[in-house]
């Protein structure tokens, strides 16, 4: 079976006062229905990789290589065609939810607008049902309070779950989660892990899960890509990476994870 997403020899360079090679010849593929983990430390290029898939990089970034999604080369797409993909076909959950909601509109208004603009649901009442369903899936039960609140009135955890609800309401074929839990505490983190597993098992989502926490990879992912200073160091099944890492960097990562754990 053909993979859902193929990333071939992607290189990203930030051009400015100082040249900065953020990614160097990164290749991997994502199969339909799997959770692929991308792990690396701060500055290893994880977020650059996530944003380059949707071509959301700043202008100073120069991208080379090709990305193939459902058989078409999306790196050659024009902006309007990409716009169609964003949200509807490929959803992205950013790291900091507070920065991704507009502070002057209520969460419900923004959610409604997203569904309307993307043409996901034409009828206003249906949209309301859709929003409620999505919020429940993301473990938010007090739907009216969430929808009528402004972003600053909600906690970080609630806002992050509202963002997840917004993204999954569009039922994208590919979900990119960029460290969705790193600003949350363990009780919420644990709930979200099970939410992602349910999304995959019950609704057939394909997920790219970006993190620096090996524990999350262990709990959630099927395969892992290890990123270090912009290069792919290792790519294998979860079990073989954790039990028998081959690369030096992966080894040190596993060691420091074990040291914290025991």
């Amino acid at each position: 079976m053909k993979p859902l997403l193929e990333v071939k020899d992607i290189s990203v360079e930030y051009v400015g006062e100082k040249r900065n090679q953020a990614l160097e010849k990164v290749s991997f593929d994502v199969k339909s229905g799997e959770i692929l983990g991308i792990i690396g430390e701060s500055g290893s290029g994880k977020t650059t990789l996530a944003y380059s898939i949707l071509n959301l990089l700043p202008e100073s970034a120069k991208l080379k290589g090709s990305i193939i999604f459902k058989g078409s080369i999306i790196t050659e797409f024009k902006e309007n065609k990409l716009c169609y993909l964003r949200g509807k076909e490929i959803g992205i959950i950013p790291q900091d939810p507070a920065a991704s909601f507009n502070p002057v509109f209520s969460v419900g208004y923004q959610f409604n607008e997203f569904l309307k603009v993307k043409g996901i649901c034409k009828d206003a009442e249906e949209r309301l049902v859709l929003m409620e369903e999505a919020l429940n899936k993301a473990c938010l039960w007090d739907v009216n309070k969430i929808l009528n609140s402004y972003p600053h009135q909600l906690s970080g955890g609630q806002l992050q779950r509202a963002m997840i609800a917004l993204v999954i309401a569009a039922k994208p074929s590919l979900l990119i989660a960029d460290e969705p839990t790193s600003s949350l505490d363990v009780t919420i983190e644990s709930q979200l892990v099970h939410m992602f597993l349910r999304l995959r098992d019950e609704m057939g989502f394909t997920i790219i899960f970006i993190t620096h926490n090996l524990g999350l990879i262990e709990a959630l992912c099927d395969r892992v890509v290890v990123l270090y200073q912009g290069q792919v160091k290792e790519m294998a099944d979860k079990a073989s990476i954790i039990a028998a890492p081959r690369d030096e960097y992966t080894k040190s990562l596993v060691v420091s994870f074990r040291e914290v754990g025991e």
């Binding site: 473990c139 007090d142 363990v186 009780t187 983190e189 644990s190 709930q191 099970h194 999350l216 709990a219």
Partner: peptide
């Protein structure tokens, strides 16, 4: 929760 075993946590 630390082991990611906890599934549901009421509001």
């Amino acid at each position: 929760a630390c082991e990611y075993k906890m599934k549901d946590y009421p509001a």
